[in-house]
Design a protein around this nucleic acid. Structure first.
Length: 666
DNA sequence: GAACGAGTTTTTC
DNA sequence: GCAGCGAAAAACTCGTTC
């Protein structure tokens, strides 16, 4: 089943170099695949990229070997068991087959390239690609004849086709034309699903009924209409579900369509010989695994080897493969398609220069923030993606309790993550925000998250006062030393380099304009909440860095929220970190960056008081508001793993238990 | 064992 | 002449916590 190293591999080493470029794409039927593979191999070998690809390839081979070994270990009883499992699942899937819908997948032909040709007719008939020397986004059909295609580095593309003309990407233009096509789609399915700028799924069941026409006729009409509106051609696939419609739209590309009748026999015949790679969601790696571990190359074989699929893959993956074997796909239109994450990343010449790296990070944070604000999104989990000079990928994430979208907040957390990875030589930095909601910054904490802090400050656990009460306008934050130093050195402040459109550039070395906010303390970054008590001047004292907190030597520490003031029975009692290190109540020492542990420690003392029965008056009175809390809960899991909780950990009260206890006191 | 978070992998254009 | 391989999103896996 598996491909073993043969003598031809040694004689023609490029044959075992798996790239995505030999996968048949529309317009590439007559391409000399071996020649393309050889050129790609020869231009790549010896590079760091190539070495990394080889590492990845070896990893996949290992995975395949493991799977084959697992297959070999399956006993006859195992196989018969999994055969039954597969058959049962196939019957269930078959019972749910829905052939009542007519789905249309519309795919614009070489979209970016076609738009470029439209605006520059001299490109007509010439091989051209949209992109740059480092990477191309798409190629027209003339270029595809040479093996040039999307996701190929420009320098390889030029080697394959020396006449190749490059056009820079212009997303504004593509968006404009995309909008024109969408206006057409809208007429046929108001709930059409845009898959990308140049692709959409339309449920035309209703419109076919209304007009008394077939899916084929609607497809023709739509394609004609798109051409009329844009001057661009597209291809369409018509089938009973989205998965099949997508496969169908590729069959008669460009400027064609294919209709798969809505009957089981037609679907099964169509799917039987279909290579698995044609299915959306099955890419280079899955194809490789299915082929080399299980000998599965066509969709039909998914069913034939159902027992092995059920034995080797997770339930959801097995189910997907079996449904592919049956030619099943989604037939519904999801009511809401919520975006799960939003990200921005940039590649640049590999560097270990920390100043440069921080500058890049800052640019990306800025771009991400802009994108998020455009979309009206805020997120809780920030992931830093890094690609080392050796092309190895890493990611580090932090999850905050608060949804954020401001660049200064993003940068604050991103800086911490990056700082932990230094020194490092990088060629890419990316930032991704997930756990999105659609509300703006400053949303209240999720009321289901019953943190002690939240409970205390809101009084009624609703959290509604949190933002109103957040009053520190001049906090220091825990941003990396770099930004503090940067402000001092003024190496960026006041520079007014142009900010370019982030989508159009690879390897752009521009520096974004750095406004004062990014260099100075920001108002939200420390996430410090102050609840001012008219009878206490804690807030004012802190702001002025005087009197009651003068045991803390470092003024900045005060502003970082490293002090806690707890009021008890109207009598002010200070709880703070002496010398920014030592708990004033029990004397336990904890470094300043143990933010979460410190918070936990504060909570512990507070809970201790409550347990001693000292709490009721505190909670009943408005003095509750005078607690100054440090709420920076944002600590990466990796950091958490490294650090152990305070020695008092054993006495920590589970938060839910605490709620029960304190509610009893009310 | 479900939910969640972090980190990795895969796919797509 | 020379070196040189992207960006975005989501799924998946695994460990931790409750």
């Amino acid at each position: 089943m598996a491909k073993s190293e043969t003598s031809s591999d040694t004689a023609r080493p490029w044959q075992s170099y798996h790239t995505v470029y030999t996968n048949a794409k529309a317009g590439m039927d007559g391409v000399d695949k071996e020649k393309v593979q050889r050129i790609v191999y020869e231009m790549s070998k010896g590079s760091k990229y190539f070495e990394n690809e080889e590492r990845k390839e070896a990893f996949i081979r290992q995975k395949i070997e493991t799977m084959r070994a697992r297959c070999a270990k399956l006993t006859a009883t195992d196989i018969s068991h999994f055969q039954m499992v597969a058959e049962k699942r196939i019957l269930e899937l078959e019972a749910a087959r829905n052939l009542s819908r007519i789905w249309l997948h519309v795919d614009m032909d070489a979209f970016y390239a076609a738009v470029e040709t439209l605006s520059n007719p001299s490109l007509e008939g010439k091989p051209m690609a949209v992109g740059s020397m480092s990477m191309i986004s798409t190629a027209n059909y003339e270029a595809r004849k040479f093996g040039v295609r999307a996701a190929m580095p420009g320098f390889i593309a030029r080697k394959l086709c020396p006449e190749l003309i490059f056009a820079p990407t212009d997303f504004k233009k593509y968006t404009y034309y995309s909008d024109l096509t969408r206006k057409v789609f809208q007429k046929y399915d108001p709930n059409f699903m845009a898959a990308s700028l140049d692709e959409a799924y339309l449920n035309v069941t209703d419109v076919c009924k209304e007009k008394g026409v077939t899916g084929e006729e609607i497809a023709k009409e739509i394609r004609a209409s798109v051409f009329e509106e844009t001057g661009l051609t597209c291809s369409a696939g018509v089938a009973a579900n989205r998965l099949l419609a997508k496969v169908c739209s590729d069959i008669n590309k460009p400027n064609g369509q294919f209709v798969l009748p809505n009957n089981r026999m037609a679907v099964m015949t169509f799917i039987s010989s279909l290579p698995v790679r044609k299915i959306g969601g099955i890419g280079k790696v899955t194809e490789h695994i299915l082929s080399d571990a299980l000998g599965i190359n066509t969709c039909e074989e998914m069913l034939q080897k159902g027992s092995y699929i059920c034995a080797l893959f997770s339930q959801s993956t097995a189910e997907f493969f079996l449904s592919v074997g049956l030619g099943l796909g989604r037939t519904d239109t999801p009511e809401v398609r919520l975006q799960k994450s939003i990200s921005n990343e940039r590649t640049f010449s590999a560097t270990g220069d920390e100043t440069l790296l921080y500058r890049k990070l800052e640019e990306i944070a800025e771009m991400l923030s802009t994108d998020m604000q455009k979309e009206g999104l805020c997120g809780r989990t920030l992931t830093l993606k890094l690609k080392t000079a050796a092309f190895e990928l890493r990611s580090r994430a932090v999850t905050s309790q608060k949804h954020i979208c401001a660049s200064k907040d993003i940068l604050k957390h991103a800086s911490k993550l990056l700082k932990a990875e230094l020194p490092i030589s990088l060629r890419l930095i990316g930032l991704r925000m997930s756990h999105l909601n659609e509300e703006r910054d400053g949303v209240p904490l999720d009321p289901t998250q019953k943190t002690l802090t939240h409970f205390m400050v809101s009084g009624d656990a609703s959290g509604k006062d949190v933002d109103e009460q957040r009053s520190f306008g001049h906090e220091a934050h825990d941003i990396s030393d770099y930004f503090v130093n940067k402000e001092k050195s003024d190496s960026f402040t006041g520079s007014h380099e142009t900010r370019h459109s982030h989508r159009d550039h690879l390897d752009s070395n521009h520096s974004s304009e750095l406004n004062g906010d990014n260099c100075t303390f920001d108002s939200n970054a420390a996430e410090m909440e102050t609840f001012h008590n008219p009878s206490s001047d804690v807030t004012a004292d802190k702001l002025e860095g005087t009197s009651c907190l003068n045991t803390v030597t470092n003024g900045a520490s005060l502003l970082e929220g490293e002090a806690e003031a707890v009021s008890s029975s109207g009598q002010r009692e200070l709880f703070l970190w002496v010398n920014d290190y030592k708990c004033s109540i029990c004397g336990i020492e904890m470094p300043p960056d143990f933010v979460e542990e410190r918070q936990e420690h504060c909570d512990f003392h507070l809970a201790e008081k409550l347990q001693k029965g000292e709490s009721s008056t505190v909670f009943r009175s408005s003095n509750l508001r005078q607690r100054v809390v440090c709420k920076d809960h944002i600590v990466s899991q990796s950091q958490r793993k490294k650090r152990k909780s305070s020695p008092k950990e054993g006495r920590h009260i589970p938060i839910d238990l605490f709620f029960i206890k304190s509610n009893q006191n009310f």
